[in-house]
Amino acid sequence: MSALPWLEGPLTTMALCWRLERRDGVTIGLTAHDRDLAVDGLRYRAAPGMTPSAIRRSDALDADSMDASGPLTAGAIGEVDLLAGRWDGARVAVFAVDWTDPGAPMALGEGTLGAVETADGAFTAELRGVATALERPVVEETSPTCRARLGDGRCRVAMAGRRCFARVVAADERRLTLDRVEPSADAYGAGKLRWFGGANAGLDAAIAASDGATVTLERMPPLAVAGGDLVELVEGCDKRLESCAGRFANAVNFRGEPYLPGIDLLTRYPGA
């Protein structure tokens, strides 16, 4: 006897479900069934327009993949959120359940959201399986600059005093004027700005440079910026050995090879 009897017989009671968890912790459930379902404490909203492509799974080293498409709805996945990047890298689990008794789900695939396309009020999203991690390089390449991220486990610089909150006073193209001044020259250059208020709440932005009470972003956020929006500023690092030693006193943890000859050795000559 099958462990999943609802898959047998001339008429099945199968419903497909998607569990999506964004990087900021927001989690939603969608089902292709015509009624909402409750599975493991999460309500899966009815989204009959959600349709998956064929799910390809294997025991080889090739990456599993699947595409899912459906309508854009304000209560589930909105076009604004997709374009703003809130769903980039979201974790996705796809499974099937018996809609008459959704207590024993059958896993079909899991991974993260990849490329997302929107058109005519609908979206198509690529699901990248966990095997895609095997496509990444297994060793790092040498580089004259540091490969660690400021404050991570390899860098080990304490970040407790290198973050602060501020409010936006004015916004002009990529430049923001804030209500507080940086602690040192270009302290937030190559750092990060996190939006805690306003239309862009939950998004991150890379900082190109900072000067006094202004910061210049690599690019403006997708939604409008208003005065009074709360942001968090995180100091950055230009990843040079001189900065690591002089500014952070952390040369012992520098993760680069500034004196290793590279391909530019061929272009060097006396007086260059």
Rank of each mutant, 00 (worst) to 15 (best):
I207W: 02
D211R: 15
A201R: 14
D211T: 12
P221L: 03
T216D: 08
A213S: 15
N200P: 12
D229V: 10
Y188H: 09
K192P: 00
G212H: 10
D229Y: 11
A226W: 07
L203V: 02
G197N: 11
L230M: 12
A206L: 10
E218M: 04
A226S: 15
A226P: 03
G198F: 12
G212D: 10
K192S: 08
P221E: 05
P221T: 01
D229G: 08
F196N: 04
V231C: 06
Y188K: 02
D211S: 15
P222W: 14
I207N: 08
L217E: 07
N200F: 13
L203G: 03
S210G: 08
M220R: 15
G228H: 11
G212I: 14
I207T: 04
A190I: 00
T216W: 00
R219A: 14
Y188G: 02
T216I: 01
A209C: 05
S210Q: 08
V231E: 03
A199F: 06
M220F: 13
T214E: 13
R219I: 01
V215M: 04
G197E: 04
P221F: 11
D211L: 11
V231H: 10
G198V: 08
R219P: 00
V225A: 02
R219F: 11
M220L: 13
L217R: 08
G191M: 07
A205F: 03
A226I: 03
P222D: 12
A190Q: 15
E218R: 07
P222S: 14
G189W: 01
S210D: 07
A201W: 02
V231M: 05
F196S: 00
P222H: 15
Y188F: 15
W195H: 05
A209N: 11
A187P: 06
M220T: 13
K192F: 05
V225R: 00
D204I: 01
A201F: 01
A201T: 12
G227V: 10
A208I: 02
A209Q: 13
T214C: 12
G197T: 03
L230D: 12
G212L: 10
E218N: 03
G191W: 13
W195S: 01
L193N: 07
G191A: 11
G191C: 10
K192M: 12
L230H: 13
A190G: 02
A190K: 15
I207S: 03
A206K: 09
A208Q: 14
V215K: 10
T214G: 01
D229E: 11
G227I: 09
D211H: 13
D211P: 01
D229F: 09
A187S: 11
A201P: 07
L203M: 09
T216A: 09
L203E: 06
P221D: 01
G228N: 06
D211N: 15
A224K: 14
R219G: 14
G198Q: 12
A226M: 12
A213K: 05
G191T: 09
G227W: 12
G198E: 09
S210F: 06
A205W: 04
L217I: 04
L230F: 14
A206S: 11
L203P: 01
G227D: 12
G198T: 09
W195A: 00
P221C: 01
D211Y: 03
V231Y: 12
A206T: 10
L217Y: 04
I207L: 03
A187K: 04
P222V: 14
A206C: 06
L233T: 09
G191F: 14
A187H: 13
